[in-house]
């Protein structure tokens, strides 16, 4: 069934409903994320959830000031973040149940960054030592 078209200028009651439902969605995402951390803790879900919560908070502030257009935009931002987090969780749930728990992180994880930095620092050291060696050889060759 086709969903009724949403208005870009919802009234106060509709905005309260939207915000409350986004908050409920986020609460469910939080619980599912906790459960999912047994097989994969997605940093992107955490960032999206935090961003959604921040946007929602701002939406509430604007609504209290009766600035409906800004409140609606913030609520929309919160919804986009929430929807993104939900879709990532769903994809990972599917992979966990039907696949082999091989997950693709859409953004580099802190652990992978840490690993790469460590490797680059070692490479830097090796290459610098190599410069000394090359210099010694150059000196030997006159």
């Amino acid at each position: 069934m086709k969903q009724p078209k949403k208005s870009r200028n919802p009234n106060r009651t509709e905005l309260v409903r939207i915000m409350a439902l986004i908050e409920e969605n986020l609460d469910e995402i939080d619980k599912e994320h906790e459960a999912a951390s047994a097989y994969h803790r997605s940093e992107l879900v955490e960032v999206s959830r935090d961003n959604a919560q921040a946007a929602l908070k701002e939406a509430v502030q604007f609504l209290a000031l009766e600035d409906f257009p800004k409140a609606e935009r913030e609520a929309a931002a919160a919804w986009f973040y929430t929807d993104f987090a939900r879709n990532i969780l769903d994809a990972e749930f599917t992979e966990h149940h039907l696949g082999e728990d091989v997950f693709l992180d859409l953004v580099p994880t802190r652990e992978s960054v840490k690993h790469e930095i460590s490797s680059l620092m070692n490479d830097l050291k090796t290459e610098l030592n190599g410069v000394y060696e090359s210099l010694a050889v150059t000196e030997e060759q006159g």
Binding site: A75, A76, W79
Partner: peptide, 26 residues
């Protein structure tokens, strides 16, 4: 407003995951 949202949560059947809560047709 906080209390109004609290009241909504008290009686809420929960979100419908497929419902697009905002206007995205633009």
């Amino acid at each position: 407003l906080h209390l109004e949202i609290a009241h909504f949560h008290d009686n809420s059947p929960g979100p419908n995951k497929t419902e697009k809560l905002i206007d995205i047709d633009s």
